[in-house]
Write a protein that binds this DNA or RNA. Structure first.
Length: 636
RNA sequence: GCUGGAGUGGCGAAAUGGCAGACGCAGCGGACUUAAAAUCCGCUGGGGCGAAAGUCCCGUGUGGGUUCGAUUCCCAUCUCCAGCACCA
């Protein structure tokens, strides 16, 4: 502090145990006490630094700041635990908006402080030692927990205990207090645009025509507050939001004073944060929903959304819900039981090679050099060599092969309307489910769409006579009983599709139906008893096609209310199964056996096999592992 | 830098301790056709030996470990993707 000054600098820390290691302090350039603390000798440098920092955006201060910068204020502070005088600096690596906008710097145990201390040659005092007794590296900060050292009454304590002891001491000496800090990211609730819920708030206007600072909510009887109808709701070009144009809506008289409505509006998620509650009872004009209905439906069983939903909408929804919960308006602390994040669909796979301005091919790692341009290649122009793609015409040149995020600028956007027009809504829907696991990021492929379209066409031809002019059933469709193989496969398919749907494995459910269709296609007799349950399985995946088939099978009504097919466990089992027999972990022969063969019989059968004997080459088996229904492994 | 996820054929993938590559795409061969498209049938991880039937070896990013047995479990490591990013 400058001579005679007795100001107090408040800091926030999560490591009070390192207070003995605080060798300097840093204030954010915007900190209120900077001007008071700056000595005349340092004034010019400090002012210049603050001026420079004020020009930088937050982005520049964080993303681009490769090296830390700062300026000494000329003043010193007293470390409350040991009375040491420590210099006070300002630096933009300390954020004004977090904590108190000031820190105690512990360069031995904080990477940022360490970097700064090294650059400006500030002292570094170690006050924590690793639990395993090792030395801390001299060129880096040790930010892990450990044992306190050089710390007076804390010496020898583990970090957790040292923290507690230090806080107790600070509170006793009235030099500090414990506090939990919460921060909700991006909690900015005002938008300067028209489309959004208006805030039901009024600003009092004084006799001078300026706001007095007093803010009051509108009367509850005036809710809901609706947007005023505006012909022109585009931004005005002036700083005030578009609602400023609603001149006869803005001013309100109340108790003889003039009030002005809030002109900002709420962001989209103001409404979307609680729609799941309003949807339960959308016509209720007394409450956002009837508690009985909320009790019945909430919490939401499953929430499926993309990445931006996970980080923003979901965060705010939960926050919102917890506020309602704390105030007793909802019965659950959490709104959603389960979250599933579906993966991003990328554009089609792209192959790019790079060429310099002389037209010569260069390696992809030269891509950022001036004059180097990407050249888009077709699949035919590239080949795989080792684990990279190379030019077919010059295999020494590597090719960059990847799928990119869909974006207008890249021109790789797939318009679903076009896909529906070309292949139908069922194909689009089915393809999206068939591409891979729901949660995975995966590239789009028009050929893949064509593949599922062909599958649906195949299904159609199993049921329908595609040579006929009018819609009629394939003549092979009959009322005969299905053969045992078909029946077994049907029940296996019902089981697989049912299980996969329960686990949201849509891709493998579709694969199972494809296998079943491949089985049905060559059959000269197609029993309707094997077809009807299949249509019901297909319905959630390709609803339009399934309805058509259902009607063609002679049903007048929709299949939507039909019960889901149930498999018969007894029908899943084949009369013979194949069991691989390994000798020392390598498959040597496969045995066809009855599925209910005993362990002992299977072992005997395996050992008696000539192929097994040949591989044992006269050695006696040391161990035989028999996994019923799976395999036999003979170790010898 | 931190956090999370992922590395398996030419491509999307399947198999969660027990036959690696189901299913689909692409490719190759055949049938049908005057022809093509569509459709149907067959083959299709790599390599060796063999005229063939066949047979042997290698193979799930890399290195190690556990196990009779590892894509799957454990340890280490590399690469890619996504989100966040000086939060004291």
């Amino acid at each position: 502090m400058p001579a005679g000054s007795q100001s107090t600098l408040r800091v926030f820390t999560t490591r009070p145990d390192t207070l003995f290691g605080a060798t300097y302090m840093v204030l954010a350039p915007e900190h209120a006490l900077v001007a008071d603390l700056t000595t005349p000798a340092q004034k010019a440098a400090v002012d210049a630094y603050r001026e420079q920092a004020s020009r930088k955006s937050d982005f520049e201060r964080t993303e681009l700041a490769e090296e830390k910068t700062g300026v000494f204020t000329g003043s010193h502070a007293t470390n409350p635990v040991n009375g040491n005088k420590v210099p006070i600096w300002i630096a933009d690596y300390v954020l004004a908006g977090y904590g108190t906008g000031a820190i105690m710097a512990v360069p031995a145990h904080d990477e940022r402080d360490h970097e700064f201390a090294v650059k400006y040659q500030l002292p570094i005092t170690q006050v924590v030692s690793p639990l395993d007794g090792s030395e801390i590296p001299p060129d880096a900060a040790y930010s892990e927990h450990g044992l306190a050292m050089n710390s007076g009454f804390l010496d020898g304590l583990k970090t957790t205990e040292a923290k507690a002891r230090m806080i107790d001491w600070l509170e006793k000496e009235k030099k500090g207090s414990r506090k939990v800090n919460y921060k909700l990211r991006d909690w900015l609730f005002s938008r300067q645009r028209y489309w959004g819920e208006p805030f039901p708030l009024l600003h009092e206007i004084g006799t001078d025509g300026e706001p007095t600072g007093r803010i009051e909510p509108i009367d509850i009887s005036e809710l809901p507050l609706k947007l005023p109808v505006l012909e022109d709701y585009k931004p005005s070009g002036r700083p005030e939001p578009p609602l400023g144009k609603a001149t006869n809506w803005i001013e309100v008289q109340r108790d003889g004073t003039t009030w002005r409505r809030e002109l900002n509006t709420m962001p989209q998620w103001a409404g979307s944060c609680w729609y799941y509650l309003r949807y339960l009872d959308p016509k209720n004009d007394q409450a956002f929903c009837d508690p009985a209905k909320e009790n019945f439906w909430m919490p939401v069983d499953l929430y499926v959304g993309g990445a931006e939903h996970a980080v923003l909408h979901l965060l705010y929804s939960r926050f919102w819900h917890k506020v309602l919960f704390d105030r007793g308006h909802v019965k659950t602390a959490e709104p959603f039981k389960r979250l599933v994040n579906q993966g991003m669909i990328l554009g089609e796979m792209e192959y790019n090679a790079f060429r310099d301005n002389a037209g010569a091919w260069v390696q992809p790692n030269q891509r950022d050099k001036p004059g180097v341009e990407p050249v888009r290649l077709t699949e035919e122009q590239v080949e795989k060599k080792g684990d990279t793609f190379v030019l077919k015409s010059d295999p020494t040149i590597k090719v960059d092969a990847r799928a990119n995020k869909m974006s207008k600028s890249r021109g790789n956007v797939i318009n679903p309307d076009e896909v529906v027009k070309e292949y139908g809504a069922d194909s689009l829907r089915l393809y999206e489910m068939f591409m891979g696991p729901l949660e995975a990021t995966k590239p789009w492929s028009m050929r893949g769409v064509e593949g599922v379209y062909r599958f649906l066409s195949r299904v159609w031809r199993v049921f329908m006579d595609d040579r006929s002019e009018e819609m009629r059933l394939n003549t092979q469709v009959s009322n005969d009983a299905p053969d045992p193989d078909t029946l077994r496969l049907l029940h296996q398919t019902i089981k697989r599709v049912t299980d996969d749907l329960d686990n949201m494995r849509f891709n493998t459910a579709i694969a199972a139906m494809m296998e079943y269709t491949n089985h049905l296609t060559p059959l000269s007799v197609k029993p309707s008893a094997a077809l009807k349950p299949f249509v019901l399985l297909l319905a959630p995946f390709a609803p339009h096609l399934a309805e058509e088939l259902w009607h063609s099978l002679g049903h007048a009504n929709t299949l939507a209310y039909e019960p889901w097919p149930i498999f018969e466990p007894a029908l899943l089992v084949a009369s013979t199964i194949e069991i691989p027999v390994q000798v020392n972990g390598k498959i040597r022969v496969r045995l066809l056996v009855s599925p209910d063969i005993s362990k002992e019989d299977l072992e005997k059968l395996a050992l008696a096999d000539p192929k097994v004997q040949e591989n044992l080459a006269g050695r006696a088996p040391k161990k035989v592992i028999v996994v019923p229904g799976k395999l036999v492994n003979i170790v010898g």
